[in-house]
Design a protein around this nucleic acid. Structure first.
Lengths: 202, 202
DNA sequence: CTTTTTTCCTGACCTGTGTCATTTTCTATT
DNA sequence: AATAGAAAATGACACAGGTCAGGAAAAAAG
């Protein structure tokens, strides 16, 4: 594992974001009003599914509190795209004129509070506020960058590297501490790293 | 391989887009003028690198003619994210305030003509024309959907399935014909499918 | 405090796929 | 046309990691 280090290579398979997304700060007070009127806040228990891959996407979601996994459903194994802590916008890819269904499923790891924003309203706000739209685009870009990194790691690295990546990531970005209680099972770690539950244990 | 079919699962590892992107149609004549003044058109020979992962992204690119691969550089193996035929916008993830470097490298398979658009101008147009920004966001979404599909396939399917996927994809989306001359080597197919050159041959 | 159920761990086995070495075929150059 | 060099094909081998079966530990339920 002593390959030459190159700083331009994507090395982390990290499964979460770096920055928070104060995207709503760019809305005017009236726009915020419009948004709030088309938003409902819902609390989910641990393990509940917030949205299901393939269903029509009628809202964009903002995770107010909690921790969720965003994953692709597979037979027999799922693939976790990201793990998202509070303060993140979820379901932006649903704002897609071509195919307005959810690309992925989202399930809570712990009790979570989610703001459900009507997608038509969200869209309208983007069309009338370019700064806001630009901000959303930046969020998507960040997401893309992160997905690429993960993509690379899962297809090119071995078990140990992947697992290490994920643990470092969880430590650094989600819990922000060197020690933490893992609210995920080995099975979850398997989904995260694209390997079998048995292999995670080794 | 007789798993139950579920229509909501991402099954294709396809490496290219479905739709064309007439995104510039949403610009006003003046805006088009602004864009054109900040654009240069360059011709690349087969095998040349148009942009290099990690360098500062000073422009967004529009592929006027040709065929290119967009890939992550790896040691020792690269990973092709998509293959892009003419009519596509490349490098949109570079419009990212956080880290304005190219996330990936782009290399031509055949002689290609590329419009290099100044990124600051592009950004400015998005900020002053929300419809345009929205259109770009839609492009990114399509890209994301496609990347997820590929991600899933490369991490969960086996050799034969992946290779079949890619060939079907190339046939359907790029050459639009059942028979075609493949401008890619086995090595390229290896990069595409995330496997070794030797394995492709089997 | 028991019982039941779920999660976790372990070992044996086996298949898919990467690596390497060698030969054959194709492509380019003089 | 002859030669050199690259790309493609093939077979032998190794090993990472998936699958399966069974047991230990922990959590949930009664």
């Amino acid at each position: 594992m002593d390959e030459p280090y190159e700083s331009n290579l994507p090395t982390s398979s990290c499964a979460t974001h770096v920055y928070d997304s104060p995207c709503f700060a760019l809305l005017t007070p009236e726009e915020k009003g419009i948004l709030d009127r088309q938003t409902v806040t819902i609390t989910y228990k641990k393990g509940e599914t917030i949205c299901k891959q393939g269903t029509f996407a009628s809202n964009v979601m903002f995770l107010e509190k909690g921790l969720v996994k965003i994953y692709l459903e597979g037979n027999p194994k799922n693939l976790i795209l990201t793990i998202t802590p509070s303060g993140q916008l979820i379901g932006v890819p649903a704002i897609y004129d071509g195919n307005n269904t959810f690309l992925y499923s989202v399930t809570t790891y712990v009790e979570s509070v989610v703001k459900m924003i009507d997608v038509a309203t969200f869209k309208q706000l983007m069309l009338q506020n370019a700064s806001f739209a630009y901000r959303i685009l930046n969020l998507m870009n960040e997401n893309t960058a992160q997905t690429y990194g993960r993509f690379f790691c899962l297809t090119q690295k071995h078990l140990h590297g992947r697992l290490a990546d994920i643990l470092i990531c969880l430590s650094g970005r989600i819990f922000k501490s060197l020690e933490f209680d893992l609210p995920l099972s080995r099975n979850d770690l398997g989904e995260l790293t694209g390997m079998s539950t048995e292999s995670v244990i080794r």
